[in-house]
Design a binder for these strands. Structure first.
Lengths: 222, 222, 222, 222
DNA sequence: CATGAATGAGGATTCATTCAT
DNA sequence: AATGAATGAATCCTCATTCAT
């Protein structure tokens, strides 16, 4: 190792990069298959077929179908966290404007990447088996409560927000309203003959959700 | 058959009742199994084992695993509809009070019967395959929009509600906030180390949800 | 059950008998396959193919390849025990004659059913995993020490046998000499270009083994 | 190559020695793995992992799993032959003493190196596939018959041994009694709750085996 | 109506072996 | 001589479904 030339290192890196690409390829396909058919319904054969590699590679890298599932979940949570981090909210805005921006961001993310909503539905059906064993994910999600708290605090300081809304409670409302339309859009759509994913509905719901969230923190005249 | 005596008819009836009981038994067990493991994850063998009858009976009555699934979904929607019908709301109350009562009813139902929330998660993962082929269910769910509409209308007449909230929009908010805590309670709980099903959280969320919904219809001073 | 007619019982029995035949068929084939290729080397597919039923039936009855192996071992030990029980040794013979008969019986059994020797070789390679969990087999084998002891006691009483040979020690010598030629016959034959299973060798070794065993218990003039 | 300097030759040699060491390492690990799990049960991956080299080296040196097996068998037979050669038996002793020494040597070897007994069990399960294709091994084993013959001849000349015992027959008895306790020790131990490898049993059986063998050649008073 | 036996297609996983570097 | 990645053919096992009685 000590005598490895730069040429050798380069070779190593190229192989590593290729391997990483293979892994990512598998994860990508697996995410779609699992999101579409559920964990039990997804077929390793089918995942392999849609991949640039073979079934055995899945086991080489992930050990088992469940190991693959864990990698998929890990990836999907890492992605959403990355999106949240890169979503800068104007620091000099009013609390209301900040909250609006935050909700719109969240709304748009889920509208854009419906696989996340489906995957957590699946994770819930499996009793959050992945999350229960991943400390990493817990740590990943805590910061988002801080973001919400800072907005709440600012609103309280401004005198525009109620004082008794907890960050986790607000997070619940935001999540529920932004995710439900994705995770339960199929049944909702089937019953009421609407397509929540269509542009008009998306626009209307975006407005509705923002208003609902702002309504929760708004001071009431009662 | 044409010459059947009354004794024979009685026997027939008794047998019918027994058959109905058997079917209900199977549906009950199947609901739990499917809600627990998903449609693909549920095992016909396991369902049969937990039933008072045998596997062949499932095929006799429901034709296939999918047929059983349809019966299960049919049953679960029938149940919630029954609950909604029997929930009388005081006809002389204010629109606000009526809406509050309606939301609390909905909240309580889902808290009490989490299998419904799980089952619609599963139905969503399977692209609402059941609902798409069941006209009956669609008809079952329309009345609930009328209920909401009548409350909204009353509120508008009273001058206490906004005029621009659509029944389906309000239904979305109510459903999302009442169901999400059940359908996504496992992941939510795992990430934030809380048990949304515990009495304190249930109470706090009940209040929160009612306030959020009332906030949506409330006239704003802006 | 209480009202079952004799016709029904007969049907039941016929089915049971057929099922038992199926199980026995599987065990028979599995014994040969495992004895031939070892436990790991034996193929469930191959066993199924040689059977009158399908692969799934193997799992229906035995749960797993290992479960099948346990059934095979159980069966093979039951068989040898049955053979031992049915081998009457003339009760009025001299101890020497009795011992000779006992050894010849043992020798002939192993020569006749070489699968037993192969199966215990395999069981030894797997660290006696089956025997370690089967109390039944232990109990099955104890009586044989009593048989040997009674012969030894008679010889001592006659004054023709040594007093210091333990039943278990004698059993060891008999087993080793009767089984080794089967379990290790392939290598022995390959090295020395002989076929221990051929009639002449069998006859000569039968004589040799008997003499060796009698030699162990014989009083020595030293 | 033709112009290789002495420095290059030295390098060559060093590399050869390293290569030889690597091969021996692999053979050692493979012996243990195969002896433990059988030929089919042993895993090339596992062998490679426990080795100081990689899996590809195994294929580089031995071509295939079976090639490795042949090398392992070759090695294990070479080892026992070496041990036999180095076991000097006092040339002026009586035939009895010589035979006793020979048996004790054999007994001790197998007690000390149980892998040999396990390996020939495995080779037997695979129908002596290795031995059948190795002339070398056959030649290796013949001398041992000469050793036995010389002892027998001396005993006959002394008038202390029977005249009708064939060297191969005596070899059979010695092998069976010395090896069976190793190769079948697991089942024997499991059935009779004894540990044949323990010091007391080893001592008792050593005595027993010697007596049994001497008994075979001893002149009888019949 | 009821039951245990039976089936075939499929589904997850493994493993000896080879390849690219 | 050395290594991690890659492969394809097995290999064990499962499961919805049907059959015989």
């Amino acid at each position: 190792m000590s005598k490895s030339t730069s040429a050798e290192l380069k070779k190593e890196n190229l192989r590593d990069i290729a391997a990483e690409r293979t892994k990512q390829d598998i994860i990508q396909v697996a995410t779609e298959e699992i999101a579409t058919h559920g964990l039990t319904g997804a077929r390793v054969d089918e995942i392999a077929k849609r991949t640039s590699t073979s079934k055995a590679m899945i086991y080489y890298y992930f050990g088992s179908k469940n190991g693959l599932y864990l990698a998929v979940m890990d990836n999907i949570y890492a992605n959403i966290r990355k999106a949240e981090e890169s979503a800068h909210i104007a620091p000099d805005a009013t609390a209301s404007a900040m909250l609006r921006a935050y909700v719109e961001n969240t709304f748009d993310y889920h509208a854009e990447y419906p696989l996340f909503a489906r995957m957590i539905s699946i994770e819930n059906i499996h009793n959050a088996s992945f999350l229960k064993q991943s400390i990493k994910i817990k740590d990943m999600n805590r910061p988002l409560l801080l973001t919400i708290k800072s907005i709440l605090d600012r609103g309280i300081a401004e005198g525009t927000f109620r004082k008794d809304v907890k960050p986790l409670e607000l997070h619940y409302v935001i999540s529920a309203l932004c995710i439900f339309r994705i995770s339960n859009g199929q049944t909702f759509g089937a019953i009421f003959d609407v397509d929540l994913h269509s542009a008009p509905w998306r626009k209307r719901q975006r407005k509705l959700v923002v208003e609902a969230v702002l309504g929760v923190v708004a001071k009431r005249g009662d």
